[in-house]
Design a protein around this nucleic acid. Sequence first.
DNA 1: CTGAAAGCGCTAACAC
DNA 2: GTGTTAGCGCTTTCAG
Lengths: 341, 341
Amino acid sequence: MARAAGVSATTVSHVLNDVSYARVSPETREKVKTAAAELGYGPNRLAQALRSRRSGVLGLVSEDVATTPHAGRMILGADQAARARGYTLMLSNTAGSAGTDLREADVESLLERQVDGILYATMYHRCLQPPANLGKVPAVLVDAVTADGGFPAVVPNEYGGAAAAVEALHAAGHTRIGFLNNTEDVPSTHQRLKGFRETLDRAGLDGAGAPVVTASSDADGGYAAAGRILDGGNPPSGLFCYNDRMAMGAYRAAAERGLAIPADLSIVGFDDQELIAANLHPGLTTVALPHYAMGAWAADRLIDMIEAGTAGAEPEPVLLACPLVSRGSVAAPADRVRAQG
Amino acid sequence: MARAAGVSATTVSHVLNDVSYARVSPETREKVKTAAAELGYGPNRLAQALRSRRSGVLGLVSEDVATTPHAGRMILGADQAARARGYTLMLSNTAGSAGTDLREADVESLLERQVDGILYATMYHRCLQPPANLGKVPAVLVDAVTADGGFPAVVPNEYGGAAAAVEALHAAGHTRIGFLNNTEDVPSTHQRLKGFRETLDRAGLDGAGAPVVTASSDADGGYAAAGRILDGGNPPSGLFCYNDRMAMGAYRAAAERGLAIPADLSIVGFDDQELIAANLHPGLTTVALPHYAMGAWAADRLIDMIEAGTAGAEPEPVLLACPLVSRGSVAAPADRVRAQG
DNA sequence: CTGAAAGCGCTAACAC
DNA sequence: GTGTTAGCGCTTTCAG
């Protein structure tokens, strides 16, 4: 290209990269730019990377890209943030079930490609043991934490999300609120429960005494759990569900009992899986998981680390807000209030 | 590294790459390998790429990675296929709404990074106008076709999927089958309708006379459409729905009319969105979109082109099968048959 | 103001 | 059998 523009490679480099200390005449600048435009010339980022020891590539290793619809949002957030700062994402899917050695190999392959940093993402909030070689470049954990810190990490504020759900029900006038929780031993199970109880306490309701039923985190589990809670003594008028799938089961349980939503029973879900939440009738009011924001935050943080050259491990995982998404499944507990009033 | 093993770089290259024509003594081989292992040495793929003019990277530009839960499956398929042949995926999200010039810039950025080929994916089956610079490297279209051919492309066999759905209903004994179709002017709308009618004809039923109602492709649309078809004269005992969201609406319409699924009404969806299909009650029998397979096929085909050095445009888009996924929403039309028998 | 030289890490061709 | 040389496309001194 340089040769074709009748000028040296150095000059081309200077012009096209807007090198600050370069003094190039306006005419030469023009000549280079038009030549570049005509030839459709683009720099070879590989050669640049080799020379500068900066690839401008972020490795994204994600466990089971496919298993959750949220994956896309996270990738998108990371991609946008990366792109905004001139970086590109390189993908590497890892099987969640794979052994540490295999996942280490995945990281290694990214390392060989000279990625400047690595985003290590899981598809649901969990605590993991990262591969040993992850520390070789700056790295950030997405939707995951390690037992011993060591990496900056970003996870959803599960506690706050549960609080938002309970507050929405309380604000609508509900005083008897139940929780359909998951049975798995994952952070979200515990933190959403904690958020549920403590928010009730703060509202002057009895958190410890509020009905909580656990089941598998799908529609069938939600159906069964809702059945148990609705058929028990003094059933709640508002139901907070561990996730949207359980809420979907709760809808069915309510329908079978002749309870209209939201007139007779208000429901709040969690996850904001649009496919479910927007297609239920009425639309499900739910708490959104901040996948886009987590992806974007992580990429930004990673690039900061890369450009600062610091390993700077965050002492605590960063919590991102889980905002309430209102649709139509929450209303005042009208009948009950009138009946009791 | 070479220097550290007391041997030349050439020799290191020869043993680590198993170069066929290299004659290296077994002792030297050992020496190199142990040195590499101890240093945790991995080759610099960037330098290799610069030298060999082969990056081993596939660009994946996808319109709106995030908007559909299927995105992950497609990416996963492409990633697995690519990885199996030593390639890695580099991501570039493009806004579906963006102009051609913007999408051209996205492709350009991948080109600058010297990708060996490009996978251009849309998130639902459509006909598109690819950016002009896409032709600069081998490229394959995923879930999309161009008006004028030019690129190999892979799309779902919508017609075959619709046929499978109708056949499942017919095999269960249904002779009066209706179709809830989408209103949008996209290939799937037309091809599923064609598959619906022609399969009925082949079964000796009246394809042209079969009831078809169109509505928006979500639960509300499905609810409305199902209502119209069920309240009409001589309502069908089997319903084929354009997608799972519409089927979800049809479930509600059936419930409101006291029709049990599948006893009183059999339903088949399309898309196999597990979030919906597996969580409805009963589980929705539906037709799966082959996103994983499309991703894998496309990556494989692309690598073939790259390694063969041919542009070899496929004359026709490749159709991948949409298999039926049986859950619990199809049964024999028992009541009706008895009533009429 | 502009260009020549050196070198990022690697490999192909060719010596020795 | 093994090492030397050259060069992939770029950027960074440093000369002119």
